[in-house]
Computed example of a mutant assay.
Amino acid sequence: MAAITLPRPSRPAHFGIPLRDTLALGAGVAGPLAVAGLLVPFRTHVAGANLALILVVVVVAVAAIGHRGAGALAALSSAVWFDLFLTRPYGQFTIAGSDDITTAALLLAVGLAVSQLAARARRLKVVTVADAGHLALIHETAQLAQRATSADAVVDHVRRELTGLLGLDGCRFEYGSLLGHPPQLGQDGEVTTAHGRWDVERRGWPREEIELRTVGNGHYYGRFMLRPGAGGVVALQARLVAGTLAGQVGAALADVGAGAVTEN
C-alpha cells in the first residue's frame, strides 16, 4: 500500500496565526457587539437575563467555529457590550441594578464555560469521524506486524507511512537510549515541549525534530524522529493515527524481544 498523503493546502496566516483563527478572534469581538447593538431596541421590554442568553448563543457559535481562545474572547466581549448597551445607565461601563450586576457576572462565567465545552465538542467530532484511508493503514500495519519475520520490516513500513501521513520532510528510527529532550508527539496526538503543550492547531509543527516513542508491553524500545515539512497544520486525526502506528511498532519489538530502554 502506498503512503497516504493528506492534502496540505496552503493556509493564509496573519502574524503567524492561521486565517481561520484570525477570523474567529475577530468574530469573538465583533459578533457580540453586533448582536448587542441589535438588541438595544428591546432592552426596555425584555429582561436582562433573556438578553444575556442570546449573547451566550453567540459565544457558543464563535467557539464552535474557532477555538477556546476565540470563545473566551467572545464571552468577555459579550459581558462588556451587555454592560455598555443593555444595562442602566445605558452607554456607560457602569451597572446600577444589582440584578444586572449578577446577570453580567453570570454571562461572563457561563460564556467561558460553554466556550470550553463547544470547543471540546468540536475537537471530539474531529476525532470520532474515522477516515477509511486511515483505518486501512492501521489494518495493513497490524497485518504486517503479525506476519513479519523481523521487526525492522515493520519499522521501515511505518517510517514510510509516517512521512506521507504527516507530510514530513524526513523520518528516521532510533533504537537505544532516549537522549535529549526534543518536542514529543504523544499517543493522544498532542505535542509537548520542554515548556509545556505546543498548540499545533495554531502554530503548526515545532521547527525541530519531534520524537514519537514506541511502546510495547509498557516498555520503551525506541523512537521515530520526525522532521516536519512546510505546509498547513496536520489534523489531529492524522496525529492520532501516527500514535497508533508507533504503538504497533512497539508491540512488534516486544514480540521479538528487543531490548527495552529507560524513559528519560
Results as ranks from 00 to 15, higher is better:
Trp81Tyr: 14
His45Arg: 10
Gly48Lys: 03
Ile95Met: 04
Phe82Ile: 13
Leu112Met: 13
Leu39His: 03
Leu25Asp: 09
Gly28His: 01
Val59Phe: 15
Ile54Lys: 02
Phe93Trp: 12
Thr22Cys: 13
Ala72Lys: 08
Val62Met: 07
Ile65Arg: 07
His67Ala: 14
Leu108Gln: 00
Ala27Gly: 15
Ala27Thr: 10
Val62Asp: 05
Leu73Asp: 01
Tyr90Ala: 02
Leu112Ser: 02
Leu51Arg: 06
Gly48Asn: 10
Ala30Phe: 15
Leu106Asp: 05
Ala64Ile: 10
Thr22Arg: 03
Ile54Arg: 03
Asn50Asp: 12
His67Pro: 11
Leu33Ala: 01
Phe85Ser: 12
Pro41Phe: 14
Gly111Ser: 07
Leu55Ala: 04
Leu38Ile: 06
Asn50Thr: 11
Gly16Thr: 10
Val58Trp: 02
Leu107Val: 12
Ala24Gln: 00
Leu51His: 00
Gly111His: 00
Gly111Gln: 04
Ile54Asn: 01
Ala75His: 01
Ala36Val: 00
Arg88His: 13
His67Val: 14
Gly26Pro: 04
Ala96Tyr: 04
Val62Ala: 07
Thr87Ala: 10
Asp100Lys: 03
Gly26Val: 03
Ala64Cys: 05
Leu86Lys: 00
Ile101Trp: 14
Leu23Arg: 01
Leu84Ala: 05
Pro89Thr: 06
Val59Gln: 01
Ala49Leu: 03
Ala75Thr: 09
Leu25Pro: 03
Phe93Leu: 11
Ile17Leu: 05
Ala96Ile: 13
Ala47Leu: 14
Ala30His: 05
Ala109Ser: 15
Leu86Ile: 05
Leu55Ile: 15
Ala49Thr: 06
Val29Phe: 12
Gln92Glu: 11
Ala104Met: 07
Ser78Phe: 07
Pro89Leu: 01
Leu39Ala: 06
Leu106Ala: 14
Ala36Arg: 04
Val62Tyr: 02
Arg68Ala: 09
Pro18Met: 09
Gly37Leu: 15
Ile54Asp: 00
Phe93Cys: 04
Leu76Thr: 11
Leu25Arg: 00
Phe93Gly: 08
Pro18Trp: 08
Leu106Cys: 11
Val59Ser: 01
Trp81Gln: 01
Tyr90Glu: 05
Thr22Ser: 10
Ile101Asp: 08
Val40Ala: 14
Leu55Pro: 12
Arg20Met: 10
Val46Gly: 04
Thr44Ile: 11
Ala52His: 06
Gly91Glu: 03
Ser77Glu: 12
Leu73Val: 08
Thr87Ile: 00
Gly37Ile: 15
Asp100His: 00
Ile101Leu: 14
Ala75Ile: 01
Ile17Glu: 10
Arg43Cys: 10
Gly16Ser: 09
Thr44Phe: 09
Ala30Val: 15
His45Cys: 07
Leu84Gly: 02
Gln92Ala: 09
Ala104Lys: 11
Val40Phe: 14
Gly66Lys: 05
Ile95His: 02
Val46Ala: 06
Thr94His: 07
Val35Gly: 14
Arg88Gln: 14
Leu107Gly: 07
His67Arg: 13
Ala74Trp: 09
Gly31Arg: 01
Gln92Lys: 05
Gly91Pro: 13
Val57Tyr: 03
Asp83Thr: 02
Gly71Trp: 00
Leu73Tyr: 07
Gly16Trp: 12
Phe82Val: 11
Leu73Phe: 06
Ala36Glu: 08
Ala49Pro: 12
Val57Thr: 02
Ala36Asn: 01
Gly48Thr: 07
Ala113Asn: 04
Gly97Ala: 13
Tyr90Gly: 04
Val35Glu: 06
